[in-house]
Write a protein that binds this DNA or RNA. Structure first.
Lengths: 174, 174
DNA sequence: CCACGTCGGTTCGCTCGCTGAACCGAGTTG
DNA sequence: CAACTCGGTTCAGCGAGCGAACCGACGTGG
């Protein structure tokens, strides 16, 4: 693969979590699963693959392996802070799937635990105090090296989504 | 694979974009690349794989293929609205990589085009008017079928990130 | 006219990773 | 001591990814 890990943090992230099984394991971890066999049964994943993926996640610091009992010693896997911070990725994957991969509406809603309000993960500029969309994103060099510019973006056909309106807010093209 | 596509929109999304090359192709599309050879050279991806991935993306409605010239007829690939709405996934992958996969700081910053303010993709409850994190997420059944509950989440070791503070949504560095 | 270059692919062996199934070791249960 | 649990490892087979070659439609230059 083009190892543009240096120039692109997306490529860097994919080096750790850029694989279907890994994402599903993490999803299950967010759902509270911790044990090898829980993951294995839920995902119906080959044992060897699960073992290898968990090892990778632990090696990278995304999960920890700790004994939850001695005699016989058995281990469980938990998300670290690094792992917990993957949540926006999983949430955005879920919301995109909700929106574009089904007609019958989301099977599960995510809400703010404190108040039960549905989670809304859209771009919002705290400076302009306004929502915006992908076409309103620009890029500029960061403190790290290896910047590659991103020209202004333009979509192709503005095909309508299957179901409802984009959202209550989200102005942009509308 | 456990085809829990019905129960889980994450699995459904992964069925379309759950593959390393596909994500990198989409990243390049967001950066403005459109032609077969642009993708191929930038990613150094095998031609056959690129052709197959683009075909899949077009089949699923994420990109369109349209001729940009006749004689000889040549095609370009563009993001549809469905594709453009993948941006939160890519942005969150990028921000996670910025934060956890490098010490030297992000190579590229994404900003709101209108005002240049850095993009901040964190959870924010518009009801409580407060930011929150993964551990403050709960779930409940949605309108679709097949709900699977998510118990309250608890991380393992609250290991510190390499760089700055976690919460208090990091404003633009400047 | 013919050789060469460009662009968007397809075809072809080879290899490498995923797969399901079997096996294993430490320990508990009956 | 046989059976079961849990967390793995090992192994043969197969399919997906790989680099390289080839292809077809067209423009270019000699």
């Amino acid at each position: 693969m083009s190892d543009d890990t240096d120039a692109c943090s997306i490529a860097a992230s994919l080096g750790i979590v850029g694989d279907r099984w890994t994402i599903l394991i993490l999803r299950d971890a967010f759902r509270g699963l911790r044990r090898f066999d829980e993951f294995r049964r839920d995902l119906d994943i080959p044992r060897a693959v699960l073992a290898e993926r968990l090892r990778r996640l632990v090696d990278h610091g995304v999960m920890t392996r700790r004994a939850y009992q001695e005699r016989p010693v058995r281990h469980e896997y938990r998300l670290t802070r690094m792992g917990l911070e993957l949540s926006p990725i999983l949430v955005s994957l879920m919301q995109w799937g909700d929106r574009w991969c089904r007609e019958d509406g989301p099977p599960t809603l995510l809400v703010h635990a404190d108040c039960g309000t549905e989670i809304d993960l859209h771009f919002h500029c705290w400076h302009c105090d306004t929502p915006f969309s992908a076409t309103d994103i620009a890029s500029r060099p960061g403190p790290g090296e290896h910047h590659r510019p991103m020209p202004p973006l333009e979509g192709a056909d503005p095909e309508e989504p299957p179901g409802d309106e984009p959202s209550s807010h989200r102005a942009a093209t509308g």
